[in-house]
Design a protein around this nucleic acid. Structure first.
Ligand SMILES: [Mn+2]
Ligand SMILES: [Mn+2]
Ligand SMILES: [Mn+2]
Ligand SMILES: [Mn+2]
Lengths: 145, 145
DNA sequence: CTGAATTTGTAGCCATGGCTACATTTATTG
DNA sequence: CAATAAATGTAGCCATGGCTACAAATTCAG
């Protein structure tokens, strides 16, 4: 509620919650493609075991999610081989990393400890619009001066 | 990744994702109790139809979620009657509204349009730690001066 | 007070993302 | 090269939060 004792328009309010639900559908994909891209860049390849270890879930869970990512055209994986990103997956990874870094930098500039900044950014990153991202970048610049 | 070509400690990274998954378990509850509290304050009662309308979901979905909230001790509801918050539910509502308002105020102060601020806050609010919340409040004060 | 409209409940379906347990394949090592 | 270890796959379970369709209760008019 916007502090006054008036309730906002129901449809408008519903639209916000729908937006959040929409974000939740893509955020798992975003985190996985970003991590896959990291692993490929650093290790040369992305394997199920390491995804499982770094996501903190079982390898069975990773397998299921990789299956969905492949269905959705973000990833290519053949049985017992390492996992590759499609062009679309790579684009999503780049975009996800961009958001992630802007949020982390802003939080640190705002005085949040590096550890907490990293933790909070992992959730926040999926819910910031381009408009907000621009404002956070601008603010980070101003604070640092 | 932290920009360098080094991968961070796997267990630390996993802890962050676990935190996000944890937040996702509570955020539906937070949004519902906050809305229920709003409806009680403004309308005198919270009913399934209006929850459904304002959350943008079917009344069947609301019923299922209210059932869970009751199981978890956040809500009391008897068949065909309106929905009440327990003390615990009310506490959660107050806390959720506090977070919500701090985030919205900060975003607006940062130059985000009121509409976008409200939209983004609905997702962000569930992923900000107390530490970050304090920093955002402080920053909002500074910007406004 | 009765009949229609509204609200609420419930059943049963689906996809997602968790898990364990077990099977299979690939990699390592003696 | 064979045996063991490690990685991957798969089956089947669970809870959540979506939905539609239908049933039952409550509320509102007339
Ligand atoms: Mn994330
Ligand atoms: Mn979220
Ligand atoms: Mn919310
Ligand atoms: Mn809220």
């Amino acid at each position: 509620m916007t502090s006054s004792s008036e309730l906002e328009n129901a449809a408008l309010q519903a639209a916000k919650f729908e937006r959040v639900r929409e974000a939740h559908k893509t955020e798992v994909a975003e985190d996985y493609v970003e991590l896959i891209d990291d692993l490929i860049n650093v290790n040369g390849e992305a394997r199920v075991v390491e995804l499982a270890e770094r996501m903190g879930v079982s390898h069975a869970t990773v397998n299921k999610i990789v299956g969905r990512l492949q269905r959705e055209g973000l990833v290519v994986s053949r049985p017992y081989r390492s996992i590759f990103l499609t062009d679309e997956g790579r684009e999503m990874a780049v975009e996800a990393r961009r958001r992630h870094e802007i949020v982390v930098k802003f939080l640190k500039a705002a005085g949040v400890s590096p550890e907490t900044a990293e933790i909070d950014a992992e959730g926040i990153e999926h819910h910031v619009s381009d408009e907000t991202l621009d404002c956070l970048s601008a603010l980070t610049g101003k604070i640092e001066i």
